[in-house]
Structure formats: structure tokens, C-alpha cells
Amino acid sequence: MWGLMIMAIAVIRFPGTNNENDVMRALGTIPGAEAQLVPSRLGSAALKEADGVIIPGGFSYGDYIRAGAVAAAGEIMEGVKELANDGRPVLGICNGFQILTECGLLPGALLPNTSARFVCRWVYLRVSEQTTAFTEGLEDAVLKMPVAHADGNYYCTENDLTVLNLHGLVPLRYSDENGETVPAVNPNGSIDNIAAVINEAGNVMGMMPHPERASRPSLGSADGLAILENFVRSTKC
């Protein structure tokens, strides 16, 4: 119907977000994916029609205070929290992951890489054997995706770590080519090689690697596309 805004997936752009076009383009290759770019200044009202939210990577608000801290305090995040509480899928990539931990939708924090360097390279990821909405069909697989971050060192309390492991809330861990999650391949010092975390309800995931930058063979890998496809499918549930 004319005039009805169709917005299945909201891709949020904060000042300093810089991966939104990559995400939009990757979503564009997925049949049935309706995505719209939403500048954060439009606030939570702009998310009313959304079936799911992706918070892409970048350097929102220049990473001032801490990566993701200022964006997490933005009014639009009230809308993201509402959607998350309604069970809609929310995916935070890189800076988006940082924002999700900062706003409390995901446990833990992303601290400066132990190397004190910005790390930008391809990594292998071991998918957990437990099925999650985001990794369905990828159980136990080894995926190749790039990371690019200065603050990707996932840290959480012992208690949180116990809960994460107990409930299978760590869908991705840094691994070698063969899927071995050895310390040597950990790019940032993350506790237990954690590369992604999912909430207990199973509908909010944050990940440091970039699936949108591994969404077609010409980019070097298409392994990330399946995660975005799963995300799109869960918006239709």
C-alpha cells in the first residue's frame, strides 16, 4: 500500500559509523531482505516499524570516553532495547558489539587489545556446536572473516563467563584454520578467545568480526553471508 513505510531491518548510523553501506550492500544480496538506513538522530520513534536492528561498525562519536559509550547513551538505544525485549533480532558488529555491551544488552566489556595495536586482518572463527538463531546451519563450522578494531578484547566477570559457557552463549571463538581455539590465534586478548556473545534470550548478538566484509567471494570470503541470512530469516519469524 502506498504511504506505508516498509522497514523490516533498521541499520543504525551514528555519527562516526562507517560500515553502514557495506552492511546495506550485503543485505541487498539476500532475497527478501528489506533494509533501511536510520540515522541515530531520528531517535527511537524511527524504529517503531522495524523487525530487527543491525548496529554496524565504525567509530561512533570518535570512540570518545570509551568505544561505544556515547552511542549507548543515545535516545535511539531506548528503541533498540524495546525491540530486543520484544524478542526482535539485534546484531551489533564491531563498534555495534561495543555499543551493545555498553548499553547493557550484552554482558561484559570490550577493552583495548592487549597488543595495544589496531588489529586489521583475516581471522578464523570456530562456530559453537549449539544452535543459535544467528549461526543456525553453521554449527561447528570454521568461518573466515576479517577483524578491524582497537578495542576488541572481550572481558567479563567470572560469573558472567560461567553463565555464557553454561548456556552456550558464545557462538564464535577465534580459532586456527582447523577450528582449534588456541591462544596463539587470539587477535586481541579476548577471554577464552571469545569473538561473539549472545544474550540469554538468544535474540541479541554482538560480534567483533565483520560478516559484511566477508559476504561474497570477490572480497576473499563469503562466510559472513550465512550469518546475515540467518539474521534476515529471524526478522521474519
Partner: peptide, 9 residues
């Protein structure tokens, strides 16, 4: 706790 510091770390 809400902005200036991350109480976890």
C-alpha cells in the same frame, strides 16, 4: 556508572 566509566573494568 552510566557513562564516564565502565564499572566492569
Amino acid at each position: 556508572t552510566r557513562l564516564l566509566a565502565n564499572p566492569i573494568a
